[in-house]
Amino acid sequence: MRLSLSGEHTGDEYELEAAIGGNKKDEGLPHAELFDEFVDAVCTRDEARIAKGRQRLVDELGEAALIDTAADIAAFNGYPRAADTTGIPLEDYKDEATEEMRVELGLDSLNLSTSRPV
């Protein structure tokens, strides 16, 4: 949702479906494929892919970008756990504002986690 709002603010258009593993073409976001690869590697705890993705991030965006991407991934390993364990719902205003987006993206049946080992 924040990605959409950021796009509205900057005037950029992003293909949100790409973020949850759908359309890979024309996401509109610089280096989206690079982020996909690194997020997938970290979230599936695939050490070889993490190492490869890490090096690509450093080579293409720099060391600070790696730090900020890894920190972002870490943060969003936190918020969902806190929300889901305590049953925190989406606020009404967010629910209404994102209804169309959630239908478009199929978020109600979202499940990338089947590929995540434990």
């Binding site: 796009g7 973020a19 982020f35 996909d36 965006l61 991407t69 972002d72 969003f76 969902p80 986690s113």
Partner: peptide, 24 residues
């Protein structure tokens, strides 16, 4: 101060949340 854009931050956040079955 961040070395990736706000849009990139939110893109990564969305994808990670999907792995955790969470769209909060």
């Amino acid at each position: 101060e961040r070395a990736i854009s706000r849009a990139q931050i939110e893109y990564v956040a969305t994808r990670v949340s999907a792995y955790l079955d969470c769209f909060y």
